[in-house]
Design a protein around this nucleic acid. Structure first.
Lengths: 219, 219
DNA sequence: CCGACTGTTATACGCGCGTATAATCGTGCG
DNA sequence: CGCACGATTATACGCGCGTATAACAGTCGG
């Protein structure tokens, strides 16, 4: 007697692709790149391995799509953070910074996922372009927020400041995600805001009244 | 007729172990974790695959050793940088920072290597301990350098400052290594020194006369 | 309601992986 | 000088990988 053939439902191309991409991201985040095999991805997405090749020319193409989705998602979350907030320049900048240093952006899985793709980014010009575009877009948003601040600046100053603030946020993002027990709740945000305040010569901690999950941990 | 058996020389346990560890690091740096197979490692180290199991219980143990060596090497380079420099607190701090933002520490291979081990660090308590110790050692050196600066500080202030400076250096290290074309020569060091100056409330750029490969790019 | 289209599953292939173990030979010691 | 020890090589095994392809079945227009 033959075992019953697996039942299935047809679904849209988009939902299949996103399910496969999501499964890939989850597996890389949990177990590193080598855990994201076609069989594991298919199982997580609720399909059989062969279907991956129906929607992606190769596993590598699926990997690239997953990386693109990761980067797009992270920049989108940054843009969201300054969407629903007031018009004050300091307030908007503080909200943008805080959003990058709080879950779901501040997350060990996200860091592992990002790190897992790093060598592919270096070796694949296509992914390198995605990385560079994403990095520069984030930095550019940061720079525009900085330029709206009520200050007098020298030419070229805001570019350097944006690079520094970006690096500071990146570093806090990595260490805050990897060693969460080393910092108190909200401490990473506080450190980010105070340090960037020092770099820019202002005080962002006075503009955090509206931030979620914040206030109880600030002095 | 049989092909000739490969000739070989006996070598010390230490030289074999370091050769295997170095080969592993190089391969991960060049092609990511999946490029460091036992066969590729053995070839790079000039031995046959079986020998790996003679010196390491498993490939995983070799991987752990390679990660430990990476972290030890990076902290050692930081310590070296403040070894041969003068006694001025600002000068020593500036030398320490600059050393982390210049080759061989600022290097794409090093970043890819570091990133390639990230998920193992998360899942292996032994490696997590190595990471945490290495991170805290670096941060502690930074904090001690900051505490010798001629300033009046509030209690707990230097810890927060060390965390921020560490994060800033980490972020500049990653982006400066991954996108070297985006920054001018020495610009990463300049940005690091000026930003940390702002965080600490002093001017480190006046204490960089002795730094190698520096001076021509500062304003 | 039925047939064709195609999304989906099932199965197989070859390769390279980490590992295990036996054969070999360089070398230091008596 | 020779012999025994063990560092090193050689070979093989089984598994899981990515991929290719044929068989099947859900679905939709007529």
């Amino acid at each position: 007697m033959q075992p019953a053939r697996r039942l299935y439902r047809r679904e849209s191309e988009e939902s299949r692709r996103t399910a496969l991409i999501l499964a890939t991201q989850e597996l890389v985040a949990e177990g590193g790149p080598e855990a994201a095999t076609v069989r594991a991805i298919a199982e997580r997405a609720g399909v059989t391995p062969g279907l991956i090749r129906h929607y992606f020319q190769s596993k590598d193409e699926l990997s690239r799509a997953a990386y693109r989705a990761l980067m797009d998602g992270m920049t989108a979350k940054g843009a969201d953070a300054i969407e629903g907030v007031g018009a004050g320049p300091e307030e908007r900048l503080a909200a943008f910074i805080a959003a990058s240093l709080r879950p779901p952006v501040l997350d060990a899985g996200a860091v592992v996922l990002w790190a897992g793709y790093m060598h592919k980014v270096r070796s694949d010009p296509d992914l390198m372009a995605v990385h560079e575009a994403s990095y520069l877009a984030y930095r550019d948003t940061l720079q525009q927020l900085i330029e709206t601040l009520p200050r007098v600046v020298k030419p070229g100053q805001t570019r350097v400041e944006a690079i520094a603030c970006n690096a500071l946020i990146d570093g806090l993002w990595v260490e805050g995600s990897l060693l969460p027990g080393t910092f108190g709740p909200g401490e990473v945000i506080t450190i980010g805001l105070s340090s960037i305040s020092a770099i820019l010569g202002l005080n962002l901690l006075d503009h955090t009244a509206m931030l979620p999950d914040f206030g109880k941990t600030t002095p």
